[in-house]
Design a protein around this nucleic acid. Structure first.
Lengths: 341, 341
DNA sequence: ATGAAAGCGCTAACAC
DNA sequence: GTGTTAGCGCTTTCAT
């Protein structure tokens, strides 16, 4: 007894432009025109095509389109972490605008790891994105070469440099830290502790803060360094350790992120320490709670929405072939004084 | 005088497999094999090809590959918001695993807006993703039809239903809220206020909480409803208004997110109100600060990492053609009692 | 182990 | 306004 036909897969056959053309009684190209340049097609034809599209539930194949036109309408975006609001909020502002211009985002997290970034860049480039967004301005030479080779616009965000791969949108981390140090000195703080996460930009801020604070006060700066990403819990831990080591009067803690600062605030409150009288805190990032917590947090504000939007504009400028596109966009920073320092 | 050649664009000509083949003295197909099935090519040939790839910096064109093979290795992921850690953390867990299996993510934010979701689904489907991840289980009929039509695996997350498009991974929101209500009653709270953001799942939790609390206590539940996403600031505002309206003893606030709860905690602290004695607070989500803040926050924990990972496995199961894949994955929830209630 | 041929579904260039 | 012809850069199938 012969076996009946088994494993007859439903084999979802996709509707193509050719199918639509057949239904509408026109050729495949006309369908293509109807979809991408409707005014180049007669109204009657257009209507028949639209009807066929409706009936069949036709969905264009953007893969084929991209292959034929060498335009993928894809932007590759690489960020260190999605769960860190400073990056995700930029990404939201960025992708909002790019989406409005017909671009889609392919996303990867690099976790502050150059190797992951390298792999991710290679993989993303194979999709032939029309542009790439990277976080930070320090990248392996391989990454730089691949990107240069791809010959597409690249925007590096959250930092600036005189030698971007293509262009960058960010701010001078060292200057932000120096501003914080100046503020701390002017406000009368005599001792400082830095609380720092492991990422390279945070380290640069720490060093710039320390250099300036020491130069102005002739006082050593104590360092609390973490390799893990900043969390509230680590912030609490940091203050605990500082207290164990002996907290001096007139001490300010310069945290590499508001997350740390929040932890310091919590720990201070638990221990019945008054902020800013017993200890002062400066955060970094100006997340929502900084303004809303009690005591409110003195911090360095980065306008992440503007940053994301500027990155988008920079790419759009490049797409439109604007003659002399700006290479370095400094969106600045602002030290926001509140109650904690 | 004839014009010289101007606008000579550098026309980045991409290296192709054919180019590599020419360099290595083999045909284009052999290059294809060398890259996707190295063991089907002789060691010497393989080495020559690899060398050519190195020299030229060849990057495969995944667009062409996907078109030819009908496999894009793309997963479309739609989430309401990237800046909300509950979604971004799931996405991180999810994409981590998918990336490990060779898949890339195309991302869109829908902002809790069905229309945006509909447009996004259509756009994403045109890229011929191998699967789609959606947030929530309520989608327009158009979305359902498009997805069904695409014939690819679909996973709906952060909620469960008996009638998923394909499969879902989440938990029963109503049950979570009922558990919170039961807890509140058992803990001796006599009055309740719900603080709720505008999204549909939060509303469902609110209603379930209210129904159960009222049934158990014969007491009306007061509602504080917001249409905007939950923020600390709105949480403070909520408590202010509750107090203005007259805060009764033995009141518990059931917040639709930890964000709200944090705001309530801050406002209470500012006003010198003791938690949980003057008022109790229950959050939702168990974000990091819930455990770390003082007083720590009683909240409903959702294991977002497991959720994201389960969603990934569900898709991988489908890809591998596993016979009877599970359609409904309930990852559950857990009421975590801490200091605030 | 390697190659030739066909074709994925579209856009671009050029006819008519 | 519409159609014809060529690809885009791969994978697949079938020969050898």
């Amino acid at each position: 007894m012969p076996e009946g036909p088994k494993n007859t897969p439903k084999m979802r056959q996709h509707v193509t432009m050719t199918d639509i053309g057949r239904l509408a009684g026109v050729s495949q190209v006309t369908v293509s025109r109807a979809l991408s340049a409707p005014d180049k097609v007669s109204p009657e034809t257009l209507e028949r095509i639209k009807e066929a599209v409706r009936q069949t539930g036709y969905v264009p194949n953007a893969l084929a389109g991209a292959l034929a036109s060498s335009k993928s309408n894809l932007i590759a975006a690489l960020v260190p972490s999605l769960t860190n609001i400073v990056y995700s909020s930029m990404l939201t502002a960025f992708s909002e605008i790019m989406w409005g211009h017909g671009y889609q985002i392919t996303l990867s997290e690099t976790g502050f790891d150059p190797e992951r970034e390298e792999k991710a860049v290679a993989t993303h480039l194979s999709r032939r994105p029309d542009a790439v967004l990277l976080t930070g301005v320090h990248h392996s030479s391989t990454v730089r070469r691949m990107l240069l080779n791809a010959g597409i616009p690249v925007v590096e965000i959250w930092d600036i440099t005189d030698t971007p791969i293509d262009c960058c949108v960010g701010f001078a981390h060292a200057n932000a830290a120096i501003a914080a140090a100046e503020f701390a000195v002017e406000a009368g703080y005599k001792h400082a502790v830095t609380v720092t996460a492991g990422d390279e930009r945070a380290l640069r801020r720490r060093d710039a803060f320390e250099a300036r604070f020491t130069a102005r006060t002739q006082t050593m700066v104590q360092q609390m360094n973490f390799t893990r990403p900043a969390t509230l819990g680590l912030g609490r831990q940091a203050l605990s350790q500082v207290i164990d080591a002996g907290l001096q009067p007139k001490t300010v803690l310069f945290c590499s992120s508001d997350q740390f600062a929040q932890g310091v605030l919590v720990e201070a409150s638990v221990r019945g320490l008054a902020v800013p009288d017993d200890l002062a805190v400066i955060g970094f990032g100006d997340q929502e709670f900084a303004r809303m917590t009690a005591p409110s947090l003195t911090t360095v504000r980065i306008d992440r929405q503007t940053l994301g939007e500027t990155a988008a504009s920079a790419l759009l400028d490049r797409f439109s072939g604007k003659p002399d596109p700006v290479a370095v966009h400094d969106v600045g920073f602002k030290l926001v004084r509140r109650d904690s320092a």
